[in-house]
Design a protein around this nucleic acid. Structure first.
Length: 727
RNA sequence: GCGCGAUUAGCUCAGUUGGUAGAGCAACUCAUUUACACUGAGAAGGUCGGGGGUUCAAGUCCCUCAUCGCGCACCA
């Protein structure tokens, strides 16, 4: 068969490798990722409804993984759909400095490659290294995002630690400080001995381990036995607390006992009654260590007990006994256990399951320590916000449906988190990050957006929790604190926030906090939460398991469109995605199927172009048009409901099982034996259907559809990415 | 301990307000140069996790149990 009228490219199978970079370049050069350009060129109406969304900024800690690919795909589908609907569409890219994560990564590299510590370099030199690493990661990430086909407006790219965002951070900090929401307090915090910094409650991950649960007495003459897994802290005990209703111990309450020698340490133990103690747990008596336990510290405050610190920042003991001093806590635990055994004080030693608190980023075992740190008060009424607290503002935003969370079961998880929320510790003892905008001079303290002009002020050494700057992201990227910035006025609140459900507290909640407090509005109207990408067996993908799938590698092998489709289909919101190469291969075949459908249609319609005004359709084709119309109505509704997993599958079904297998086959018969009218009608129908399929598929498979679009003869054709969504 | 989710064909998942179970992938049989082998046609595959209940009718609603996953709390 000779096909003189079609592009020779179509005679070979579809080649994503040859196509994708070229198409992405075409999109970039068109400027259509930028909504201003779309307006300028008459693609979008200036007064059109807006659709705005920030890209959850990837951490500059390396490269993108398949989870990022999934995020980019879902968001790109939303954005391309909105753009094709004629909305004024902004998808804003950026990267996150990810303070602790990035710093500890660079520390590791420094240690491995040069055998140096950050202190060997000093703050300034070390930060230079971090910035260099961050820049390299950034470049990789941007490249990878482009490979995935993401239609991000690169002209508006932001970084959580650039000058503009730093200004926003200082402005927000100052406002919170002036409103009394940010305060400095001395209290028990989560100290990470490995990362040498404080972390917030949310940065703790619990690991289940076996532990020994010891029951013992401080001394032969002490009347009450207590139980603990942390024997080493007992040298810091100042009291024993019992439940006020516990008859067993009533007679001892109020008495103080001196233990002259508890493994070389003198203890003064007062017996107190406190409701926090459960009668049924252990012996029903609790050894109170105010310096190294949150609950104990609270009990100590209630009973006016002293605090005695016995562990330092390196998780080493500080008490004056040569058996203990400067040793690791875990070592001392066994030393004390031995001592108790020898003294005949140890009554029981049981094996129990225990949740050990570890630092999310470094894996260090958390050591509760009393420290002076900066906090955000979540329970203080705020004058400008009707005396509501930050907690209440966060609750109201979702309760009032100002923010809609998809799937809605995450609302409960969100509420539950807020109910248990304590003040947010925002200071970190690391170098990489936003420096706290507070200066000291003797007893004086100054908080300001800029440093004080006079001599002698010294800035706080600490930096801010990375999530402080991320919390401002929806508006710090749009020109805030300038309330008249055009982007801020046009695009905030944003329409959608799509992200992985594991950062709902870290990020989603903090954005709601910052936006409702600072601006009095929600940061976004809808939150779409996605699950985790897993392997074919449902295991989490990880480097150590060796089952990690590199998005770029599979894209190179099967084409980006195929990877995108397999990340979407079969995965509802909030659910985990299971990925396998089989699945990707299937959608690679589908891209090629579309290619061949095009070849057939173009070669059998020759030079005919689709005519919008054609009306002489055969009865059979009118029916087919109706069927297709109903499909489009259905999927358009589902697109608006964010049910991309259904839409993708339905288009796939229609194109392959219905359009290719049935309609194209029956067209051959018509072309051979039909009347002139039937033939021309069918040709128009096929061209029109191809046109429509390319449009509805475009958000899912942007590359192959754009490429085919360029091969279909039509007058005054725009890029497919800015064509109108069909009806 | 409290709460959430899942459990449907070998695998991954759909299944709208209750009306006799669907798709993709894999496997199976056939076709062999067709727009397309990155193909087509066909057949096979399920007491919808177990038990109980409501109903004329339950994959769907209610109760209960089990297994898996997740969140929170506890973790003296």
């Amino acid at each position: 068969m000779n096909e003189p009228n079609i592009d020779p490219k179509l005679l070979k199978p579809y080649d994503p490798k040859e196509t994708e970079d070229r198409i992405y370049k075409l999109w970039e050069e068109s400027g259509f990722f930028n909504p201003d350009v779309c307006i300028e060129k008459g693609i979008t109406d200036k007064d059109a409804e807006t659709f705005s969304m920030v890209l959850p900024p990837p951490n500059v800690t390396g490269t993108l993984h398949i989870g990022h690919a999934s995020m980019l795909t879902i968001e790109d589908i939303m954005v391309r759909f909105a753009r094709m609907q004629g909305k004024r569409t902004l998808w804003l890219p950026g990267t996150d400095h990810a303070a602790i994560a990035t710093q500890s990564k660079v520390e590791k590299i420094l240690e491995k490659e040069e055998g140096k510590r950050k202190t060997d370099l000093g703050r300034e030199e070390f930060l230079k290294r971090v910035n260099k690493f961050a820049q390299e990661s950034h470049d990789t990430i941007i490249n990878q995002s482009k490979k995935m086909g993401a239609s991000l407006d690169w002209s508006r790219e932001a970084f959580t630690l650039d000058d503009k965002r730093n200004f926003a951070v200082r402005t927000a900090f100052k406002k919170m400080y002036d409103d009394g929401l940010i305060y400095r307090g001395h209290r028990i915090v989560n100290w990470d001995p490995k990362g040498q910094t404080v972390i917030s409650d949310d940065e703790i991950v619990y690991e289940e381990r076996k532990a020994k649960f010891y029951t013992f007495k401080y001394g032969k003459d002490f009347p009450i036995s207590i139980s603990t897994t942390r024997l080493e802290t007992k040298v810091g005990d100042v009291a024993v607390a019992v439940n006020p209703t516990d008859e067993r111990y009533k007679e001892f309450v109020g008495k103080t006992y001196i233990i002259e020698d508890f493994c070389g340490v003198k203890l003064e133990i007062k017996v107190v009654a406190d409701n926090a103690v459960e009668k049924e747990f252990g012996t029903g008596a609790l050894g109170v260590t105010p310096a190294h336990s949150q609950i104990d510290a609270e009990i100590a405050i209630r009973h006016n007990l002293p605090t005695k610190q016995v562990i330092n920042e390196f998780a080493k003991m500080t008490v004056e006994d040569e058996r203990i001093l400067n040793k690791k806590t875990t070592e001392v635990r066994t030393i004390i256990a031995e001592w108790l055994k020898n003294e005949g004080l140890l009554e029981k030693e049981e094996e129990v399951d225990q949740n050990v608190s570890t630092a999310e980023r470094t894996g260090g075992i958390i050591e509760p320590l009393p420290k002076l740190q900066w906090f955000i008060n979540v329970n203080k009424p705020i004058k400008d916000r009707n005396d509501k607290t930050l907690k209440e503002l966060m609750l109201d935003a979702v309760r009032s449906k100002g923010i809609n969370i998809i799937p809605d079961r995450f609302e409960k998880i969100y509420f539950n988190w807020i109910e248990n929320l304590r003040d947010w510790c925002i200071s970190r003892q690391i170098w990489y990050g936003h420096r706290i905008p507070v200066w000291y001079k003797g007893e004086e303290i100054y908080c300001g957006i800029e440093a004080p002009k006079e001599e002698g002020w010294i800035q706080d050494e600490d930096t801010l929790d990375t999530w402080f700057s991320s919390g401002l992201w929806t508006f710090s990227t749009l020109g805030w604190p300038d309330l008249n910035a055009p982007d801020f006025k046009t695009y905030h609140p944003t329409s959608m926030l799509e992200t992985a459900h594991d950062i709902i507290f870290f990020w989603v909640a903090r954005m709601i906090l910052m936006s409702t407090y600072i601006l009095g509005v929600v940061p976004f109207k809808t939150v779409y939460l996605q699950g985790v990408v897993r392997d074919a067996q449902g295991r989490k993908m990880s480097k150590s398991l060796g089952n990690a799938m590199d998005p770029l590698e599979v894209s190179g092998k099967y084409g980006t469109d195929a990877v995108r489709m397999s990340l979407i289909i079969g995965t509802g919101p909030g659910n985990d995605t299971k990925m396998s190469e089989d699945k990707i291969r299937a959608y690679k075949n589908y891209a090629n199927k579309l290619w061949n459908i095009t070849r057939f249609i173009l070669s059998s319609t020759e030079k005919i172009k689709f005519d919008e005004n054609f009306s002489n359709y055969s009865e059979k084709d009118i029916e087919l048009k109706k069927e297709r119309y109903e499909l489009i109505v259905e999927i358009t509704k589902e697109m608006e409901e964010h049910k991309f997993y259904l839409v993708g599958d339905k288009i796939y079904q229609y194109t392959w099982s219905r359009f290719a297998d049935i309609i194209l086959e029956e067209s051959k018969e018509i072309f051979n034996n039909g009347t002139k009218e039937e033939i021309i009608s069918r040709k128009q129908f096929l061209l029109e259907t191809l046109n429509i399929l390319l449009k509805v598929l475009h958000p899912f498979m942007p590359f192959v559809t754009e490429e085919i679009w360029s091969l279909v003869p039509e007058d005054n054709k725009k890029l497919l990415m800015v064509e109108k969504w069909p009806q």
